[in-house]
Write a protein that binds this DNA or RNA. Sequence first.
DNA 1: TCTTATCACTTGCTAATTGCAAGTGACATA
DNA 2: TATGTCACTTGCAATTAGCAAGTGATAAGA
Lengths: 128, 128
Amino acid sequence: MKSLAQNYRSQCPLSAALEMIGDKWSLLIVRDMCMGKSKYGDFQNSPEGIPSNILANRLRQLEENGIIKKQPYQTNPPRYEYLLSAKGADLLPVLQQLGLWAHRYVPGSMPPPDDFMAAKPEDLLAGK
Amino acid sequence: MKSLAQNYRSQCPLSAALEMIGDKWSLLIVRDMCMGKSKYGDFQNSPEGIPSNILANRLRQLEENGIIKKQPYQTNPPRYEYLLSAKGADLLPVLQQLGLWAHRYVPGSMPPPDDFMAAKPEDLLAGK
DNA sequence: TCTTATCACTTGCTAATTGCAAGTGACATA
DNA sequence: TATGTCACTTGCAATTAGCAAGTGATAAGA
């Protein structure tokens, strides 16, 4: 995980944020995790159809950036699940605003689900 | 500008939003416009150093998506400036949240400027 | 008038990233 | 032993990114 502003193309926080999550897929994975998904297969089954190699790559990047954590949830066979860190959970307000925006301006798009809009970052950490 | 949810990869508003602005540069241009910049050269001079061909491409996409409008501001020589539409101005809350998030989690990043955080979408439309 | 400059792009080209499809390894179950 | 599942990985073609240089319209200066 990058630790100094120097590693980024500028000192602007927005710019740094976009270097971490500025693509078409990363925030979709975070969205899924906000909705309680945690397994590789869960993410793969989302309606947008993320390609498997992209998913694996994004999970790695999100972990490197400290947004998610990979944890074993069984040993036989060894399986891992992905959970939001505090940093990742705190992206929720961003996603909520972005979801509202898109719903307002994309005719025909679904409204963000009530439970998604009602959630708070701290809800996403332990018991969900 | 896409007008039906069908044109997007899913009906999720977040997903549609990311198809429009999910890259490393688009929101940086919107940020600059929120700060009062409007000319091609202004965007080019931002510290992140966007390549010229990418800038031209993103301005085109942002216009196609109805986020910005291209307007002539002089005729000799013909010159254009780029202004936020209501749709674009309403991205401000998203940028504010994302700026706060990054400032909180990227050590050494600047805090979002006070005037940026104090602004409201309606401030960005006419007189700025 | 001729030259130089500026602004807002565009073009060419290489490198990196994306995305589809198929394959792999560890283990469970029949 | 045979088949299946899950979580990836690999190969490869196609798209996109990014650097550097070029272009066209016009202004300003010699």
